[in-house]
Design a protein around this nucleic acid. Structure first.
Length: 151
DNA sequence: ACGTATCCTG
DNA sequence: CAGGATACGT
């Protein structure tokens, strides 16, 4: 489900667990759980963005023909592999193209912020979050169906 | 104030 | 992942 929506409302989220009785505690637990997904996502983005910056600084003008980490999240990248392993452990879902695009935006956004030194601002990530949260897409109804290990 | 988000930790 | 502390938006 994270492949489609990074910032689902709690109401939206609830509709995907029709069999659960939601009190305040369970609700916040669910929100927390999804929030952890976001954290993992952003941590990876930052990590790979920083790595790309380091490599750019290291290579020092020399033409780079080889395998440097690019600023993209194609299906052939390590970053993609990590994300898919985390959100799609059993590999039963096809990762939507949209998610790749959103990840791409996030990765570039992190890279640009780091590259330009914007990351010295204690709140530098908030602008990125604001961008990403507007890129949610509708979650397919298929996720509501049988036993669906949403993560 | 309240619900939610993020940070930090284990 | 969960728990706790803290920050944020309304």
């Amino acid at each position: 489900m994270f492949f489609y929506a990074r910032y689902p409302s709690s109401n939206t989220l609830k509709t995907y667990f029709p069999d659960v009785k939601f009190n305040r505690c369970v609700t916040s637990q669910m929100i927390k759980w999804f929030s952890n997904f976001r954290e993992f996502f952003y941590i990876q983005m930052e990590r790979f963005a920083r790595q790309a910056v380091r490599e750019a600084l290291t290579r020092d003008g020399a033409p780079r023909l080889g395998r440097e980490s690019q600023l993209r999240v194609g299906r052939d990248t390590e970053l993609y592999r990590i994300l898919n392993m985390h959100y799609n452990k059993s590999n039963v879902y096809q990762v939507p193209e949209r998610f790749i695009e959103v990840s791409d935006v996030a990765l570039r956004e992190f890279h640009s912020a780091i590259w330009t030194g914007r990351d010295s601002d204690p709140c530098w990530k908030k602008g990125i979050y604001k961008i990403i949260c507007k890129l949610d897409s509708p979650v397919p109804d298929a996720f509501r169906l049988p036993g669906c290990p949403v993560g």
